[in-house]
Amino acid sequence: MKYYDIHTHRASGEAEVLEVINVIIKEPVEKNDAPYRSYGIHPWYIGNVEEQMEELRKAAFLPETVAIGEAGLDKLAETDFATQEDAFLRQIRLAEEVEKPLIIHCVKAWTELLRLKKEMKPIQPWIVHGFRGKPALAAQLIEQGIFLSLGSSFNPSSLQTAWPGYVLTETDEKTGSIRDVYQGFADTLSLPLETVARQLAENSRHIFCL
């Protein structure tokens, strides 16, 4: 059985786990030898946007880069919100240019996120990572074609709302195994683990072309 971890900051070393290692564009860009990666300018770490975008553009065209992000909006971050939105818009455009999905970090900025989705009309998939919101919000995002990536802490009703076609799995910065996340999904949905794994594999391969 294959397990898909579409957003993590640490390699598991497990042969059965296919993982996308997230690299945050800082100064300098961190070296990473993972076979699948995502690169992005996180709203917590926005500095010189021009320089960061130059680094991100280099990384975006690498064959091992399967997604842009995490990028996004965070109203609890110290970075000025207008600056965050500027960096996010640049990354949306880059994701469209390189034809790769966009992994999104969003905190208390759902109205702005949905507005930008409608305004930009992106072709590439958007994935909100680490989603722990309520089912009503999940339904709003799904209605706009946005996928949800859930980790070990998730709202069971939101999982049921997004299942089967709009769900992905991740560990983010957690030390637990992606296997535990899969089992949590299976228990919540009252489905065999193999059924859950097949659906998550289909979703992951469809979005990331893995």
Rank of each mutant, 00 (worst) to 15 (best):
P101M: 03
H9E: 07
E173L: 09
V23I: 15
E78M: 03
G47T: 11
K100Q: 09
E51D: 10
K2A: 02
R93M: 07
E112M: 09
R10Y: 08
V49C: 08
A138C: 10
T79L: 11
F81Y: 14
T65N: 11
E14P: 00
A136V: 10
H206D: 09
L18M: 14
A71W: 10
P43A: 01
D86L: 14
I24H: 14
E143L: 10
E119N: 01
V107L: 07
E50Q: 15
E202R: 13
V128M: 01
T188V: 09
I123Y: 05
K118F: 00
E85N: 06
E173H: 13
F208H: 05
I25K: 02
A197R: 07
A186P: 03
E99S: 09
P35G: 12
R205H: 02
G69T: 06
L200M: 07
V20P: 01
A59I: 02
G151P: 05
E96Q: 14
G145S: 06
W126V: 04
E170T: 13
L210H: 12
D33I: 02
I41M: 06
I21H: 13
P135A: 01
G130S: 06
D5F: 01
L114H: 01
F147E: 11
P135I: 02
Q124R: 03
G130A: 05
P156R: 12
Q84A: 06
R37E: 06
L116S: 08
F81A: 07
F61L: 13
P101C: 05
F154T: 10
D5L: 03
L148V: 03
V181K: 11
K75I: 10
Q124L: 09
Y39I: 05
Q140P: 08
K118M: 08
P164G: 08
R90C: 12
I24E: 06
T169A: 15
Q183N: 11
M53C: 09
L168E: 08
P43L: 10
I103W: 02
R132P: 07
T111L: 01
L113W: 02
E85V: 15
V181M: 09
E85L: 15
G176A: 10
L114E: 02
A77L: 11
